[in-house]
Simulated scan of single mutants.
Amino acid sequence: MRGVSRLRRGRCVAIWRRFSDVTSVHDLQSDSTARSPMRTFPPERIRNFSIIAHIDHGKSTLADRLLEKCGNLEQVEQAQQLDSLQVERERGITVKAQAISMIWKHPSTQEPLLLNLIDTPGHIDFSYEVSRSLAACDGALLLVDASQGLEAQTLTTYGLAKEQDLRIVPVLTKCDLPHAAPEDVALEMATAFDDVDPEEVLASSAKRDVGTEAILDAIAEKIPPPSRGDPNAPLRARLVDSWYDEHRGVICLIEVVDGHLEEGQRIAPRSTLGDGTSGATSFSVQELGVLSPRLLRTRCLFSGQVGYMVAGMRSTSNALVGDTIILAPAGADAPLPEALEGFKQPVPTIFASLLPMDSK
């Protein structure tokens, strides 16, 4: 028995060392729910943030540098790692929202933090994607091109971020360009935005990897941890986005607000339940994990964490953006958690120009 106790103590020490030695997102992979390193990241060790800016102000390039600096990628094999759609790579713009997890040590405590970057489009035509992403964030990097200054979409996305009460971290990009004027643009930002101090604006060049570590330190220190959830409450997860995979079916991008979710549990979209459980559609969770941007299986997700879920859904109509994911009710009389505040639905708009064929 003494030998067994010693073996158990050694195993516990080994598991603790594994948790404390998490240095990159790849260390989060697990073959067991009970031993998943995700358990060691409570809400206070999580930062959910977004990058907002005008089109072509360097969001995707900065995201590439953050991934490289945090060890998600040994080197950036190709530009715009977060732009996976063909139209995004052809046109050099971000269309779909993406969520990538990274590990970075807090500059003061040296404690590993879980950073969830929710990348957003910058083009005005995709402002709905921006609003969906910001609802799952607690802070945002406000990027401004040091050679161009404030643009129209900069003001629009800033307004959306303030509506969500996000903590803004101002960042100047492309400061290496010959005609860049970082001091003037910083003053311009301070004039336009009340909560921007020109002395706290970070100067960077993602292309030359200048200022990247300072940005990561600012994320750790200035962006607050998630505070709207209850880790001990019944599961409530916000469905941020979804896409169809021909091998796995629908893959859902979710933010766990309350409680936790494990593989094998049965879940149900709250919108299908109404006030009761009649006609409810439930699904068995087959896979849970985070994106690096590749899918990394962690087998569980906890309050404040953002990741992906595969639950055997065969159509994206089962995964409505903004819906609340809860555990499938145990019976007809089982109490249902309240739905989370839904995302704003886009209003279809058509623009048309009528021009005369003949001046006469």
Rank of each mutant, 00 (worst) to 15 (best):
G159N: 13
A152N: 06
L177V: 05
P170S: 10
T173E: 08
P178T: 14
I168K: 00
T156Y: 00
P170I: 13
P178W: 08
L166D: 03
L150S: 08
K174T: 06
T173F: 10
L166N: 03
E163M: 12
V169H: 07
L160F: 15
C175Q: 07
V169K: 00
P170C: 12
A152Q: 02
V169L: 10
Q153W: 03
T173S: 15
E151D: 05
G149F: 09
K174C: 05
R167F: 14
E151W: 04
K174S: 10
I168W: 08
T156N: 04
V171C: 06
E163V: 10
I168N: 01
G159K: 07
G159Q: 13
P170W: 11
E151A: 13
P182C: 08
A181P: 00
D165F: 12
P178L: 11
K162G: 01
V169R: 01
L177C: 04
G149S: 09
V171S: 02
C175A: 12
L160H: 10
D176Y: 05
R167K: 13
L155F: 01
E163W: 00
E151M: 15
Q164G: 01
P178R: 02
C175H: 06
T156R: 09
C175L: 09
A152T: 15
A161D: 05
T157F: 00
E163G: 07
R167P: 01
L150K: 06
T157G: 00
P182G: 09
P178K: 03
P170H: 09
Y158P: 02
A180L: 11
H179P: 01
D165Q: 14
V169T: 14
D165H: 14
T157M: 08
L160D: 01
K162H: 05
K162Q: 15
E163Y: 08
C175V: 15
A181N: 14
R167C: 13
P178S: 06
C175W: 13
R167L: 09
P182I: 12
H179E: 13
G159F: 04
D165C: 05
D165R: 10
P182H: 09
A181G: 02
Q164L: 04
E151Y: 03
K162F: 02
L177P: 01
G149K: 11
L166W: 02
T157K: 00
R167Y: 12
G149V: 07
V171M: 03
E151R: 15
A181I: 07
E163A: 14
R167T: 15
V171T: 12
T173C: 07
K174L: 12
A180M: 07
E151S: 06
L155R: 11
L166S: 03
I168Q: 04
L172M: 07
I168G: 02
L150H: 06
L150G: 07
T173R: 09
V171H: 00
L155T: 08
